[in-house]
């Protein structure tokens, strides 16, 4: 992800906003980013757009201490390969956590964040990042005095 001119920013926007990818209706394979051709089925493949659930697991991660100027403010930043539950692998920053808490296999979910700003007066690019999953909030509804 680098600085992009408005048209390029706009073309990739929906994928980033909604985690849109592709699914081959012939063999069921899923892809991110979107693709026009299924590498397995080739001409027999039928590609459709799919919105991924946003749930996945950390496949591998690294901590970045020295980042390009645009991302400098986020260091030390956790960047991970996230395997989506539908299959595709996505490279993304992991937020709302500390690299000490991060583990391979940890469950994460997509959230909506600023990806980068093109200087003070430029376009703000938004899109998905991932944060650790917390599925325990249901308990608050069982406690009568929340």
């Amino acid at each position: 992800m680098s600085a992009t001119a408005p048209p390029a920013h706009w073309r990739r926007m929906r994928e980033r906003y909604r985690l849109l990818g592709s699914r081959c209706e012939t063999c069921g394979a899923t892809f991110f980013p979107t693709t026009k051709v299924c590498p397995k089925c080739r001409r027999k493949g039928k590609i459709a757009q799919v919105e991924f659930s946003g749930r996945g697991k950390v496949y591998s991660y690294t901590v970045i201490h020295s980042a390009p100027k645009m991302f400098e403010q986020f260091t030390p930043a956790v960047v991970a390969l996230v395997q989506l539950e539908e299959g595709p692998m996505v490279l993304s920053q992991i937020v709302d956590t500390d690299h000490k808490e991060l583990k391979v296999g940890m469950e994460v979910e997509a959230c909506f964040r600023k990806l980068f700003e093109q200087e003070q007066s430029g376009i703000i690019s938004y899109g998905f990042k991932f944060r650790p999953v917390n599925d325990h909030w249901g308990k608050y509804y069982d406690n009568k005095d929340i």
Binding site: F74, V95, F112, R113, K114, L115, I124, K129
Partner: peptide
């Protein structure tokens, strides 16, 4: 807010 959160990101999370 985190460095990468603003009114738009908060609005999207609440709306979802």
């Amino acid at each position: 807010p985190s460095l990468d959160e603003d009114t738009a990101t908060i609005a999207v999370e609440a709306a979802r």
